[in-house]
Structures are given as structure tokens and as C-alpha cells.
Amino acid sequence: MKCPECDADLNIPEDAAVGEIVSCSDCGADYEISKKDGSTVEIKEAETVGEDWGE
């Protein structure tokens, strides 16, 4: 599966479960596994908290 953000190969472990967060090693985008049926996996963008630089 490709990362929807940067198109890098997204590494999803075989034993990953629904609700688990996977992260793209290139761009760091986080995805939540929303559905898993055998080898078919669906992901959705995970909610992240933006960094506050305090400025």
C-alpha cells in the first residue's frame, strides 16, 4: 500500500489490528487501520496534535 500523502511504500505489519496506528517512514503521516479483512486493509488519516511552538 502507498502512503496517500507522499506515495512512499507504507509498511503495514501483517498482524496489525483495526484501530492500530501506522506511520509512514518517509513523511511521518499517521494512519489508523479502519478495516481489515484478510489481506485487504483500509486506512484513514489519524488525528494528530499539532506542535505549538509557543509563538
Partner: peptide
């Protein structure tokens, strides 16, 4: 190295 990371220290 291409660096554009949404996570971690090194964005």
C-alpha cells in the same frame, strides 16, 4: 536525504 516529516523532532 529527503526530510519532510510530520512527526518527531526533525520535520
Amino acid at each position: 536525504r529527503l526530510i519532510r516529516d510530520k512527526n518527531g523532532l526533525y520535520k
